[in-house]
Design a protein around this nucleic acid. Structure first.
Length: 150
DNA sequence: GCCAACGTTGGC
DNA sequence: GCCAACGTTGGC
């Protein structure tokens, strides 16, 4: 089983939203590197940190599980969607999503600032300059270390 | 295939 | 709101 960190803006969709709906298609990924990771490396049963980005206190807010493997993101075919991609076709879908399920909130939000201060996490793309991945792998050691901060 | 222009991400 | 970083686009 693999571990991940997935970013979302809480103003758009946060951990409390996932808690309410229990399960959600993680749509809108429009980055090839992330798409390839979802396609090749993400599997049903994997666990992921829910990270709040672009907000007052960026950080890890909860844990979710991958409950469905990669499948075409319907939003890419919807002209009304902000994720519409006219260059994609149902015959050859360009963008994928995975389905995630609510697991739990962390007892406290673990802020980006705090994560940045941990030498043990220095290799995480999250704390590295210029990183723009909205989904990134987390090693078992990093996962356990972060949970121990809780 | 190069690279300038442009758009997006996301911390601050 | 600013802006650094970086991915994508498209002219050549």
């Amino acid at each position: 089983m693999a571990y991940w960190l997935m970013k979302s803006e809480p103003d758009v969709f946060g951990i409390d939203d996932l808690k309410r709906v229990r399960r959600e298609p993680w749509d809108g990924v429009r980055n090839y590197q992330v798409r390839n990771m979802m396609r090749d490396d993400m599997h049903k049963g994997d666990l992921a940190f829910f990270y709040h980005s672009n907000c007052e206190q960026p950080g890890i807010a909860g844990i979710m599980r991958i409950v469905g493997g990669a499948r075409p993101d319907p939003a890419q075919f919807d002209p009304e969607s902000r994720y519409y991609d006219p260059k994609s076709s149902p015959d050859d879908p360009r963008w994928l999503l995975v389905d995630v399920g609510y697991q739990r909130k962390l007892k406290r939000n673990i802020s980006l600032h705090e994560l940045k201060c941990c030498p043990e996490l220095a290799e995480m793309p999250l704390v590295r300059r210029g990183n723009r991945l909205s989904v990134m792998p987390v090693t078992a050691a990093q996962w356990n270390f972060i949970l121990a901060l809780e």
